[in-house]
Simulated scan of single mutants.
Amino acid sequence: MRASPGILLNTPRIEIWPGGLLHARSNRDARLLARARHVLRRKRDGRYLAADLREGLQPLLPSLRHEPGIDDALAALRRVHERRRTGIDVVATLPLQRLRERLQALGLDDGYGERSGLPLVPEPDWLALAGFDRYRRPLWLHVDAARAWAHLREAALRDGVLLEAISGYRSHDYQLGIFERKLARGLSVDEILTVNAAPGYSEHHGGRALDIGTPGEPPAEESFERTPAFAWLCDHAAEYGFGMSYPRDNPYGIVYEPWHWAHAPG
């Protein structure tokens, strides 16, 4: 795979971001990130681990060599520098590592998928930059979904409708963090499961799901169904391979989500 400013390399524990997209958290990090070709970022908590500079890898924490998953990340980084052919490899998926550990952290067992009817969703081994979301965060999607989203958004704009991405790809670890933050606010796991799928079972993991909004409308609210943007999606999204995943009375026990649309594999 050739290095590209629009590719996020994904490994089970560590993401490899292209340089220039991450904000520095200290003056030292700012100097390194300004020169970095890539940045290694821990998926569990977003911690920056190392900057890939032209003169070599610069650790951003002293214990980098003991970081879980670092060997996989360094192997992926070497592939970036070793392979110079043009084009992008076929998207593969990561192994479903630590799934049981994540479920057990929430008091769930291996039967969650069968009970909910939700399939397991592995993460892609790389994702494409599909622009930026409403909050100016990089929007990462499966490359096929990224192309379809661009065409969908352009078509809507021609009809006078502005669609905004609220969120796209989420890792299994990020999904666990959503649960942990909501638990800290006093919600129960059962309450959270009506809104968020358990880690490993969210469509966002595959990089094909988008939460969509429109200017002036709060994110992820049922009121989105009363907007021209929602009406346009209902009429035209299928032409671009997108469908609403969680209509009213869906069989998964997920609340009605008029904002959540997923791209079907071609």
Rank of each mutant, 00 (worst) to 15 (best):
R2L: 09
A3P: 12
I7F: 05
L8A: 03
N10R: 12
W17R: 14
G19S: 06
G20H: 00
R25L: 10
A30T: 05
A30V: 01
L32E: 10
L32F: 06
L32C: 06
L32V: 04
R37S: 14
V39F: 02
V39C: 10
L40W: 12
R41A: 11
K43V: 07
R47K: 12
L49T: 12
L49S: 12
A51S: 08
A51I: 02
R54I: 04
G56M: 06
G56C: 09
Q58I: 05
S63D: 15
S63R: 13
L64N: 06
R65G: 08
H66D: 15
E67F: 05
P68R: 02
G69L: 08
A75Y: 08
A75G: 07
A76Q: 15
R78M: 06
R79Y: 04
V80H: 05
H81M: 01
R85Q: 14
G87L: 00
T93F: 12
P95Y: 04
P95I: 03
P95W: 12
L96M: 13
L96Q: 13
L96H: 03
R98V: 01
L99M: 04
E101M: 03
E101D: 14
A105G: 09
D109A: 14
G111P: 00
G113I: 06
G113M: 03
G113H: 08
E114V: 12
E114S: 12
L120S: 06
P122A: 04
P122L: 03
E123H: 04
E123T: 08
P124H: 02
W126Q: 09
L127Q: 02
A128P: 00
L129H: 13
G131N: 07
G131S: 03
F132W: 12
R136S: 13
R137I: 07
L139I: 00
A145M: 01
A145E: 01
A148I: 00
H151Q: 15
L152R: 08
E154D: 15
A156D: 11
L163D: 15
E164K: 00
Y169N: 01
Y169D: 00
S171R: 02
D173H: 10
Y174Q: 15
Y174V: 08
Q175K: 03
K182T: 05
A184M: 09
L187W: 15
V189N: 09
A197W: 02
A197I: 01
P199T: 03
Y201S: 10
S202R: 04
H204S: 10
P219Y: 07
A220H: 08
A220V: 13
E222T: 15
A229T: 07
D235V: 00
H236M: 04
A237R: 02
A238I: 05
G241E: 03
G241P: 01
P251C: 13
Y252G: 13
Y252C: 09
V255M: 11
V255R: 15
W259K: 07
P265A: 01
P265D: 00
